[in-house]
Design a protein around this nucleic acid. Structure first.
Lengths: 159, 159
DNA sequence: ACGCATTGATGCACATGTTAACCATCTCTG
DNA sequence: CAGAGATGGTTAACATGTGCATCAATGCGT
């Protein structure tokens, strides 16, 4: 009785599930490499964002935006990276609530070593999917991310 | 010095990041609805898979496959759902390692109430993205998920 | 029957996701 | 210029993600 009577899109055609599965497939390719360097996926996102940032670093909130990490997660991650000697934190004198996070030279070296391996993975995915399809996929994903969907922000009324 | 010298694909063109962002956008539309019913996203995945399963239920490993949850996560989630009276667990007599998980009538009712709201969300996404693009996106995501990427399974050699 | 690798599932440890509460600083207004 | 509110970050608490160890039940070869 549990089946047959509940009309619902099959799991396989669920966009969120497809996105989840696709991401898992790609990340399974990256994670072992990062683990080999003692980094988690999120720690790498932080290092990577900082590597592309201006030399005086980024403040925590900007870093959170760029890495799609929430504040509390980022706080913990930064504490860990600081303990590892990979990032430094400088309080902004003009507004002492803010801090600027930068990479240490040690971290810059690390990023330099990882980057080419990372590019290899991207290259493999792009090649196996086909450059044209890869681009098309990126385009559609970005378009999807721009959608403004109902119920996302306000307290929506449910039935 | 931290920037400019490390050649790396910009964050925005990173496929894993695009997948993450796209998934976040879609899930932001679903989560409030599920929270309103006291369910997390993962709990809903479990209920949904069970609702589509045969009446005698699914064993834990199959459920893990279908929901893309790892064993340990699923163990904890099932314990929670059992505590809430939403699933039951029956040990298989012929092989006592296995258990069959099924929905309780209470859970079936719950799924029945949530399903139409869920379909609404899917419909909105499909409509706003365009049915043709939606299908194309699903197709490419499934294709991506099927890729066999290096480093995913064996101990890969890193430099 | 016996040893023994395999399988289904859980336990453990650590890192992150998520929400709410909290704290320090700053800004604005009266 | 004091006090309310806004802002940037962190802390806390709980659930999940992830990899590894564990454990019991099973199947298999001899």
């Amino acid at each position: 009785m549990t089946d047959s009577a509940i009309p619902m899109r099959p799991f396989a055609k669920s966009l969120p599930m497809a996105l989840l599965q696709a991401r898992e497939t790609t990340m399974r390719s990256f994670r072992p490499m990062l683990a080999h360097h003692g980094l988690t996926e999120q720690q790498w996102r932080v290092l990577r964002a900082l590597a592309a940032a201006p030399n005086d670093g980024l403040q925590v909130s900007r870093l959170a935006d760029q890495t799609f990490l929430l504040g509390p997660s980022l706080s913990r991650i930064l504490a860990g990276l600081e303990r590892k000697g990979l990032v430094t934190r400088l309080v902004v004198v003009s507004d002492q609530r803010r801090a600027r996070i930068s990479l240490t030279p040690k971290a810059v070296d690390l990023v330099r070593r990882i980057a080419p391996q990372s590019e290899e993975r991207y290259g493999e995915i792009e090649a196996k999917l086909g450059p044209d399809r890869y681009q098309a996929l990126l385009t559609m994903l970005n378009e999807l991310a721009q959608l403004e969907l109902l119920g996302a922000l306000p307290e929506q009324e449910v039935s």
